[in-house]
Design a protein around this nucleic acid. Structure first.
Lengths: 341, 341
DNA sequence: AGACAAAATGTTAGCGCAATCATTTTGACC
DNA sequence: GGTCAAAATGATTGCGCTAACATTTTGTCT
């Protein structure tokens, strides 16, 4: 016979009942050493591999974790993923990964698809889900993590930091350094980028209010955004755009991520602008390259790996019923000040 | 009742039999419009989601594709993954992704785990699998793709290019440009990196043989490698190491990837070496940044996205039995010559 | 040795779905 | 209108495993 061996085949070969073989695979400590060895040998001899579908059906446990990220190509989410994978191992979970391409609608479809795997939990990026997606997740009755940003109305568990605050803090840093004609370069305006922009605007608004009261010079802002997806090259193009819009007066740019910032830095060199004397450049995400280019790019760092890891840990804690309510967790951020500002 | 609705619940609500509901989900064209609408409404009303485990068990089709990559953090594999994801959609496949951290042993364990999902196919990176892993895959009786490199003894389908040839070609390029004291910077010496190094050595050997015959000056080589994982920072360190070893005489470095090459470029600037006048720098993988730094880094480009895509396509073609034998597919590479050489 | 609890092993049933085959309904044609 | 094939729908069964409970074996204590 050529079909794949099943539990019964192993049981017959080892001279035991099927359930004992099953126990060797799931709770080996409940089987005596003698039998266990005999069974393990039989398993090996037949090359038996457990049928996950049958196991999941009978036990009502899929051993699957659904993860949805907005983009495979953005290294930022890869670091989160690494954190997730690092934490998944001890729990014997398989990760099913979906890429929603920054689209809540695609995310909704993915959720519907992934839920059919009856995952033990779901990890989502961001807090911008459709109403139907939220409903689906609530009905599923499994723990859900929204990662990367914070929200007032989390679906369930929420781990992240405030991109608005981080955007404000970085802008305030630029203001404190004396820059008064600041540009914002934004690409692929997802919710997190929009929050960063909102923080940028608010920081300048606040500043100008204070300055006006004291009759000081105000700060000008130049915002250039595009829906295109972010890249180094695009950073150069956006720098040209903001320079055109400000008629060359821009003295600092806050880029919504480090890819753009790197592109802006390379472009600034080509335009013969000294950084930071003629132009300051700030980024977001603190990629490795940002610390190593010359001058180093000032950026916002956040514990991405740790977020991913913690997401899995809280998820499994909740799934095992140890704790039912988790308050939102603010992992914070830090401004890495470097030569570019 | 609070349990999740199943097929029967939907069937009862719609006033049909369970199998008809099943048909709506799998082969809607076999159900009359009238019934289908009624059933779809019932599905929506109950928020019914099909139980994948039961479906897989009954139909003997898991709808799962197992993919193993050596590293989540290396953007190179992400591009392959994107190709895979782009091709997966029309086939209604879910990707289960494993990260083997460049270890054949971990890969073997992952294969054993992933096979329990009874995937429709498996996509592996590289050709360096353990014997037991190969046996497991052969027994599984499903199509397997080995991606990124070529081998004489593929397990099944093989798509990639020769890293040895590419390494040779790049070294020949450096020789043709007149460099005669060439360093090789290698990190995380996996099989592909070793192939590139072998190509490097062979190119110089060949060259020296020809030159010796013609009584010309020979080419010196300086090889610096480390098992550490690759990074921009490490590129700088390795450049220092190769300069120390060659007592500052090195006039070109071939980096086993672009991360190292970028690091070497940044470091060269700090050492006040002009690129390419004092030092040429060549890389591998052709990352976006390599084209945009100044000078641009000469690198080896390969169709990574296309490889991933084609892997899925051939896999599904084979799974559907249309074709049983595929000769190895050489996707080739190209040398992107830029300012750094 | 006998009594008893604990550990080890077995029996039975059912998880939710789709393959298979059986039956009913529909529609086309003369 | 009757015949027939095709389309639509249904009844039954089993996929491979594990939960729940039942039984047997082992070990400990008096």
């Amino acid at each position: 016979m050529n079909r794949k061996p099943n539990l019964k085949d192993v049981a017959k070969l080892a001279g035991v009942s099927a359930i004992t073989v099953s126990r060797v695979l799931t709770t080996p400590e409940k089987v005596s050493d003698k039998l266990r060895q005999k069974i393990e040998q039989a398993i090996h001899e037949l090359g038996y591999i457990r049928n996950h579908a049958a196991s999941a059906l009978a036990s009502n446990r899929s051993g699957v974790l659904a993860v949805i990220i907005p983009s495979l190509s953005n290294i930022v989410f890869n670091e989160v993923l690494q954190g997730i994978y690092s934490a998944v191992k001890p729990h014997q979970l398989q990760v099913i990964l979906g890429d929603c391409h920054y689209s809540p609608l695609e995310e909704e479809k993915l959720i519907a698809t992934l839920l059919s795997q009856a995952p033990e939990g779901v990890i989502l990026t961001g807090t911008d889900q459709t109403d139907y997606a939220r409903k689906l997740l609530q009905n599923a009755g499994i723990p859900v993590v929204q990662l990367m940003e914070l929200t007032d109305q989390p679906i369930d568990i929420n781990i992240g930091f405030s991109h608005l605050d981080a955007g404000m803090a970085m802008t305030q840093h630029l203001l404190a350094r004396g820059y008064r004609r600041i540009g914002f370069l934004g690409a692929r305006m997802d919710q997190r980028t929009q929050q960063r922009l909102a923080g940028f605007k608010r920081a300048i608004e606040d500043w100008n209010l204070t300055q006006a009261r004291e009759s000081q010079a105000l700060c000008q802002q130049f915002v250039v955004t595009t829906g295109q997806s972010s890249s180094i090259k695009l950073g150069g193009q956006l720098l040209q755009a903001v320079m055109a819009e400000s008629q060359g007066h821009c003295d600092a740019v806050f880029c919504c991520n480090d890819d753009l910032a790197l592109g802006a830095l390379f472009e600034a060199r080509k335009m013969n602008l000294r950084v930071p004397a003629d132009l300051a450049i700030a980024g977001f995400n603190d990629l490795e390259a940002s610390a190593l280019v010359e001058p180093g790019i000032t950026s916002v760092a956040a514990p991405r790996f740790a977020m991913g890891k913690q997401a899995v840990e809280l998820l499994m804690q909740k799934a095992s019923g140890n704790q039912t309510e988790f308050p939102p967790i603010d992992v914070g951020y830090s401004i890495m000040v470097r030569g570019s500002t």
